[in-house]
Design a binder for these strands. Structure first.
Lengths: 182, 182
DNA sequence: TATAATTTTCAGAAATTACTGAAACTTCAG
DNA sequence: CTGAAGTTTCAGTAATTTCTGAAAATTATA
């Protein structure tokens, strides 16, 4: 059974509040927080108990967390219940969230923009509009490519990149030098 | 007056749908799309007309867009009405959106985590939880620093970085070499 | 196969969020 | 100061989203 200390309860509730800003709803956020801070896998009933929400809601929430590939189902010898655990490292989690959000927030717009930009502008107004739309399109495409790139990077390189911090600018300068002299 | 062709209407409506995923509501998304594709600044009434929404709603929406610093008020000689225009380049816009979302989505969590991590864990459960929380904290802090860094970068360098694409890995290797040899 | 344990579904209730429109407010010209 | 032109506010309503809980479905066991 999962009984939470006030400290942990605070965190779980906060994650619930933030959840809605991150693209899922309050209870899904709470469920995920709970699974992250719990060492042992939890059953759906334990989750419902710990958070005081209905069994049905837990079922739907777990489905959503699985669709984000943020939790993993787990089976325990001689127990018919399903148990759940947060998946992977925090890095993996951040990756999943970014990827999923990109899919939901950018891909549909990108695809609509591609369609729109195939048509020739019908008048001055559309001409101006298409120019702006082209810019948005290019930006989204860049961000998409870039984020795919980051995902492909090994965790160590990502770490290096992250720690680089204010060094980014310098490294970029360096790159120019390097390319010039080679 | 702003009368939209079907193509533009499609785009505006789509941006409305996406708006909710981007952190503002449908009408705010529509309003922003409208301002982006419109060359001339628009008055609040023109916006309300073009989108078929109430004057009051437009007023609240403009307030929100201004709080995101995505639109700019404009005065026209000899006209008492306020006119509005999307602010800056698409790059500026993306910057603002990232910054604003960071403030709303990460800063509060970061600050809560800092507090929680000040307290010593009371038992085994809290010990495990705090380890996870520390990881989340470090991750968020890294992302925050990194995004501040990107904002500080000049547009040209940003451009370079973006276009780098799959070259990121190589540049990182290079950096190691460079540092070793200096 | 029957039944017990568990999970999923989904109609309706509850909660939240967005929108309207009329009233209050502000600003400015005369 | 007055009133016309415009903007903002906000109480109430509408729309949307989330949550519950009981019924249906699934799965394992005997």
């Amino acid at each position: 059974m999962m009984k939470m200390t006030p400290m942990l309860e605070t965190f779980v509730m906060h994650f619930g509040e933030m959840g809605s800003r991150w693209g899922f709803n309050r209870t899904v956020g709470q469920m995920y927080a709970l699974l992250v801070i719990s060492e042992a896998p939890l059953s759906a009933n334990e989750i419902a108990d710990a958070l005081n929400i209905s069994r049905g809601n837990v079922s739907m929430g777990l489905k959503e967390l699985q669709s984000w590939r943020l939790v993993q189902m787990h089976h325990v010898q001689g127990d018919r219940k399903d148990y759940f655990k947060a998946l992977g490292s925090i890095w993996d989690m951040a990756n999943k969230v970014f990827e999923e959000r990109r899919k939901r927030e950018m891909d549909p717009t990108l695809s609509l923009l591609r369609d729109i930009l195939l048509d020739a502008p019908a008048n001055e107004q559309e001409k101006y509009a298409q120019e702006r739309l082209q810019e948005i399109h290019d930006l989204l495409e860049n961000i998409t490519k870039w984020s795919e790139e980051l995902q492909r990077l090994s965790p160590e390189k990502l770490e290096t990149l992250m720690k680089l911090g204010s060094g980014v600018g310098k490294v970029l300068d360096m790159k120019d030098k390097f390319l010039k002299s080679s």
